[in-house]
Computed example of a mutant assay.
Amino acid sequence: MAEADTSFLDDDDFTHVINGIRYPRFVTEANLEAMATFDIRDDDIAIVTFPKTGTNWMLEIVTKILSAGGRTDASSDDMVGKLEFQYDDEPRPHHVMLQECASPRVILTHLTPDTAPPGIAHPQNNVKVIVVMRNPKDTAVSYFHFGQKLRSHFARKTPPSWDEFFQLFLAGKYTFGCYFDHVLGWWQKRDDPHFLFLKYEDMKQDLPKAVKTVAAFLQVKLDDASIETIAHACTFSNMKSTLDNSRYEDRTLMARKGIVGDWKTMFTEEQSRLLDSKCKKKLEGTGLQFNFE
């Protein structure tokens, strides 16, 4: 396959490159520099994800667990968005807005350990970090469709075709960089008790189990009935309704199908082979494996 062509992205004001990684334009260099001194509180909960791997799903689960446990009155829609973002209609970046939020804060980020705040990359005391991972094929397809919706919604330059996007994703040249570098960077911390790693596919298979695991990690005691209630509220259809009716434009674009194996509707045999080869090269020997259907 030919080398990924980024020329149409380089000419587009929707993204830019900072320190060799492409970001959406609402992730500024100043915001990234501010991560080094972002103040972490002892009861902070961070949700770390590569884009389109279950960020809002986990946010919904966490906020409902905290609410059921009497820890917060806030809903997922009350939470400040990604830590490193600043939208055009907001006078302050999110990392500044978070300083005014009541505890416990739920902090979302797509950053790698190298670019995230030290208090998230190297948590201390009672800080909790939940890392959600999704198989790269479904991630790519979900990310592609989200990019299409985002650019159409904001009347940006014509988005890449699926073939163009796939080349960029495979080469790690789309926004937020290389999927494999991201997941493996965090996966190295799997033995640190401050971290909980969950896979999107496992959550789909047994959501009540995932809710119970997250509640235990957050040290929130819930009975079985409460866990079942939260799991039901966080099924894809129920969560999609929450997102579709969000007061924030970007959240209304988030949910699409929420299934495992949707990559089969997009991938050619050659693309599947190429990504399988990349998975083997990057993941072999790491202990990290994914289900693709």
Rank of each mutant, 00 (worst) to 15 (best):
M1R: 15
D5N: 13
L9N: 12
F14N: 06
H16G: 12
H16Y: 01
N19R: 15
Y23V: 06
F26W: 10
A30W: 01
A30E: 14
A30L: 08
N31V: 15
E33C: 08
E33R: 10
R41I: 01
R41E: 02
I45R: 03
I47K: 02
V48H: 08
T53Q: 10
T53E: 09
L59H: 11
L59E: 02
T63M: 09
T63Y: 07
I65M: 05
S67E: 03
A68R: 02
A68I: 02
G69F: 07
G70I: 09
A74L: 13
A74C: 07
D78K: 05
K82C: 08
F85V: 10
F85S: 11
D89S: 10
P93W: 06
H95V: 12
H95Q: 12
M97V: 13
M97A: 10
L98V: 00
Q99L: 10
E100G: 12
P104E: 04
R105S: 06
V106P: 01
L108N: 00
P113S: 05
D114K: 13
A116E: 00
P118L: 04
I120M: 11
A121R: 03
A121I: 00
A121M: 09
A121T: 12
P123C: 13
K128D: 05
I130T: 14
V132W: 04
V132A: 12
V132R: 02
M133A: 09
S142Q: 04
S142P: 02
F144Q: 08
F144G: 03
Q148R: 04
F154T: 11
R156T: 14
R156W: 14
T158Y: 14
P160I: 11
P160T: 14
D163A: 15
E164R: 13
F166T: 12
L170F: 14
L170V: 12
K173H: 14
K173C: 01
G177W: 06
C178P: 04
Y179F: 15
Y179W: 15
D181C: 12
V183H: 03
V183C: 03
L184R: 13
G185T: 06
G185D: 02
Q188F: 02
D192E: 07
P193T: 09
H194W: 08
F197C: 07
F197D: 10
M203C: 15
L207H: 00
P208N: 07
K212P: 05
A215Y: 04
Q219I: 01
K221E: 13
L222F: 01
L222C: 00
L222D: 02
T229V: 08
T229A: 11
T229D: 11
C234L: 09
C234E: 02
M239V: 01
S241R: 10
S241A: 11
D244G: 14
D244C: 07
D250I: 15
D250P: 05
D250L: 12
R251C: 04
T252Y: 04
R256I: 10
G261H: 09
G261D: 01
K264G: 06
T268N: 11
E269I: 08
L274K: 13
S277H: 13
K278Q: 15
K280A: 14
K282A: 14
G287C: 09
Q289I: 00
F290T: 02
N291G: 01
N291A: 13
N291H: 13
F292K: 09
